[in-house]
Design a binder for these strands. Structure first.
Lengths: 338, 338
DNA sequence: GCCATATACTTGACCGGTTCAGTGGAACGG
DNA sequence: CCGTTCCACTGAACCGGTCAAGTATATGGC
């Protein structure tokens, strides 16, 4: 049982395949009656366009790509990535655009993937995630002249439309929230500073502390895993001036810390307040639930996908500012102390 | 700057494009010297095969598909799915095969996706996940004659090679583990019984309880979310004969329960032992860490992807049995009771 | 009644590969 | 020295769409 082609439809309808093509694509050139007849025949035959043929002749792949360059462990634990994928899908679904997904272990493979996908026309464009400082990807994509959109950019990337966030105000509010609850010794456990957003938040944290507490506070760097997050927490608490509140740069570390600390007899938030940067269902999984600065990751990813589709369709290139982050106050900073 | 084609290479090399095709694909028909020269020119020109052209002429898409039919919330929280994706990628990467991923919200869209992907030749085959009772997908894929592999099948699916697991022995060991620790009233909080594995585990749990405890024990059904898991837990503990141990059908519910209960003053495992069916980094995130029955999801998914590639390449169709599940004993069933 | 225009098609080139049936020349055997 | 075989390569069809250019028929205006 061979898959039907437009030629099969043309034969049944008694017209040329050109006419069938016009009819199926809803463009002028066929009468309404003929169009309806052709559509009916296509339906009867169970015709589905050959993506390869379409891609070859119209130079579109009807697919966009997403490359994940993360530790496998983190990829599995952190809800962030799947929420991004879900958001992208929400936009792509129904528009006939597919999502190509791959995970890579090193930066060279990452660049090769973009290059092959684009030159081989597997994708019409790509989404960029987790921008790094001195990230080689924007240059590559500009060189390739491939449509690309940056998800959650902290600054402008010339030539690459982005969904933009600004953590500056959010960080001010985060530290402000802790200060309001009486904290004077606040620390932060950061993700790797090679990531642009982690580096920037580190700066913003310093600024916020200077503004609200009069001096900078200690910050430690980790790889975002629960293991390193816990180790950093221990380092801080065992130090000479243990903080009374810690801002964690992701949900995984914050949740791990709350679990570990409460079971060790540390009262959260009475002895130590915990605030997570990314909000996710994980934050509700532990007790006390974790106060978090969050935003609608799914919606953001959907917006980015929309931006990419627009860029592919007509070269549009304006940034989209995301709705500001929200502070979801939960027990880990403001619970009953008992 | 147009992308180079094999015709460009042919012109530079002074041969026909047929010769270039032979050279690039490593098949006989060109001399070693010519082949080397052509390869060099291709490299210089930065040539990358057009996936569309290749797909069109050779009737291969060099891609496989994965359709996720899950609650968005669960998709984000449960590490399972991302581990599957990572495992698949591990096998596909380097073989030049891409992964098409989509999430769907209903069964009709799910089937349509498979149909379009296959008839439109977007994929050479698909992976099936989360088999349901009376799942319509095997029939559809057999009808389409599309290569497909079932990941984690509990029984044989005629025509569909599978990676097979058998939860029967594992369930016996799980209940045995709890009985050994002195538990006589054991309950289980299941995932939706519309899922084949959840339904089967429900049966196995009954069998294990009859064999090891002399009578069946209570089981409640949920949708796998933390919310319903907690509600079911409450129902059990507030009932007339509260269990002293609960087997949760996924990591999310078990972890949520441990957090909630310990913060409510329930001692785990002294008052209530908790065992999770799927092991994942989540289980290590809470205190006490959650005892879990697990298996190497990443490796399993990789094996399934390998099976699919073999099936696509040569129609091979033998099932692969996975290494048995392991029981990772942690604090939630065997911790110091203090 | 005749030319201009619109409509509803047809025709065929084209996208960039793969593949099969030639073809010309060198090597080889007798 | 001629016929056969093998090798290295050419030429062209083909995959299934898209689309620009061409054609035949109907419609309209004056």
């Amino acid at each position: 049982m061979k898959r039907p082609t437009i030629l099969d439809i043309a034969r049944v309808a008694g017209v040329s395949k050109g006419a069938v093509s016009y009819a199926l694509n809803g463009r002028p050139g066929v009468s309404a009656a003929t169009r309806a007849r052709i559509l009916g025949i296509a339906e009867d035959l169970g015709w589905v366009p050959s993506s390869a043929a379409r891609a070859l002749s119209s130079d579109r792949a009807d697919a966009v790509g997403l490359v994940a360059f993360r530790e496998p462990e983190l990829l599995a634990t952190e809800p962030y990535f799947m929420r991004v994928v879900a958001g992208i899908e929400e936009t792509l679904a129904g528009r006939g655009t597919a999502l190509l997904l791959t995970t890579v272990g090193d930066a060279a493979t990452e660049l090769d993937t973009y290059r092959w996908w684009w030159i081989g026309r597997r994708v019409d464009g790509v989404l960029l995630l987790d921008m790094r400082t001195d990230d080689p990807r924007p240059d590559l994509l500009r060189e390739l002249n491939a449509p690309a959109v940056v998800l959650g950019a902290q600054h402008e990337y010339p030539g690459l439309p982005s969904t933009r966030v600004d953590d500056h105000d959010a960080m001010m509010r985060a530290v402000g929230h802790l200060v309001e609850h009486g904290h004077r010794r606040v620390a932060r456990i950061s993700g790797p500073r090679s990531l642009a957003h982690a580096a920037l938040r580190t700066r913003y944290f310093d600024e916020a502390c200077r503004a609200l507490l009069g001096c900078e506070q200690v910050q430690l760097e980790t790889d975002y895993t629960a293991r390193e997050g816990l180790a950093a927490t221990r380092t801080l608490l065992d130090g000479p001036h243990p903080p009374t509140a810690i801002v964690y740069d992701n949900d995984v570390m914050a949740v791990a810390a709350v679990s570990e600390l409460t079971s060790a007899g540390v009262r959260v938030p009475a002895d130590l307040a915990v605030l997570a940067w990314d909000d996710s269902p994980l934050c509700e999984l532990v007790r006390p639930a974790v106060t978090a600065f969050g935003h609608d990751v799914t919606a953001e990813a959907g917006a980015a996908a929309g931006l990419l589709l627009a860029r592919i369709a007509n070269g549009a290139a304006s940034d989209v500012w995301l709705t500001p982050r929200y502070l979801r106050v939960r027990g880990s900073t403001a619970g009953e102390t008992r």
